[in-house]
Design a protein around this nucleic acid. Sequence first.
DNA 1: AATTCACTGTAACAATTGTTACGTCTCTAA
DNA 2: TTAGAGACGTAACAATTGTTACAGTGAATT
Lengths: 212, 212
Amino acid sequence: MLKILKERYQYVFEAKLIEEMASIGNYRKFKEDTIIMDIGDSIEYMPLLLSGSIKIMREDEEDGGELLLYYLEVGDTCAMTLNCCLRKTKSQIRAVAEIYTELIMIPVHKMVDWIIQYETWRVFVFESYNTRLNEMLEAIDNLAFNNTEERLYKYLTDKAFIAKSPNIIVTHFQIASELNSSRVVISRLLKKLERDGKIKLHRNLIEVPNYY
Amino acid sequence: MLKILKERYQYVFEAKLIEEMASIGNYRKFKEDTIIMDIGDSIEYMPLLLSGSIKIMREDEEDGGELLLYYLEVGDTCAMTLNCCLRKTKSQIRAVAEIYTELIMIPVHKMVDWIIQYETWRVFVFESYNTRLNEMLEAIDNLAFNNTEERLYKYLTDKAFIAKSPNIIVTHFQIASELNSSRVVISRLLKKLERDGKIKLHRNLIEVPNYY
DNA sequence: AATTCACTGTAACAATTGTTACGTCTCTAA
DNA sequence: TTAGAGACGTAACAATTGTTACAGTGAATT
């Protein structure tokens, strides 16, 4: 674990902190589509991504509708978790492995110690908050100012970007779930995007040529 | 200023920190509807509310449409600002005095010192992040899962709550701006809410009996 | 008193989004 | 090989939201 940590984080954290992480942290791996953490779960550990990608979702309390908020990637941590850790509240969000994902879990109390002790950790934590707040703002902009077609195209390019491939494997129904829309609407708009030459449709697969 | 700070924050911060705040902080006051901070402004100070209320807005880059995100009240600070301070980025949001508002501005570098130095400040900062992240989540839920009528009624009750009065002084056009909708739609839905007995309409004034 | 202007109500229509229904296709498992 | 299930396309219609247009009302000003 020390080796992987050094690989990923040697330019982010000082050697001493990385060693401490390796000795205290708990290595975990998750298969695609595994729920890593759900709404209402209480949180005692903070996840730090080593490889893979996690999607963060929100759920409608009433009808169970879902909404994709943003992705976490290597080097990211979950700011929502930071808070839950510090205040011992429950998780407000659902975290699902988008692909095969490795991470280390770090116990809460260490988190606070390190903020006082390590300059690099402090910077990392605040940068995480910043990134997350900005991702939330982006999600809000997207919902408030874009129509469903724009949201859909953004969803596709984001997903291709995360997969590092123009071909994304997903059904229309899945997309509808993550955008809190309905399958028919998504199919309709996908057809429109195809007619406009922006994507190509196949069974269980969508080509998004210009995703970067 | 020391006196006001003690009044508002004696149970939040230790005496020594409050004294330091009073000697370093810069007292400012703003009339209703004054822009305290705009999108793109660079930020050197962190605001800490003494009285009043501030609304935090987001703007569409393309057509200038606005959206109300949430309110700051006494005891709150702006987590977005915390980040801007630490990373020296520009403001992503607009802050407008909802009513007459007093605050003290604290220079960036002190913020960081205090995180290391004062336990109470550290807790305060992280609680602020938590509150703000939750407000953002609430805004996202509202946009993703509620229709315009629900968003409108929530807007009215929130606004009445901030004003501590069932009578809110606002035009239909203003509401439309803050919800990124159009005046005609808002008038239509307000009429519906009135027919349903939830509110009463007057010129420039709306009664919201059950706002608490 | 007359004029002006912002505010409100409403109609008519357009565009977008959601819903229901049904047919076709592909894959898998019995 | 066949039955069943999930995936996709599309039509028809409903509901919501947005747009344009216009009329009336009240308040302030001239």
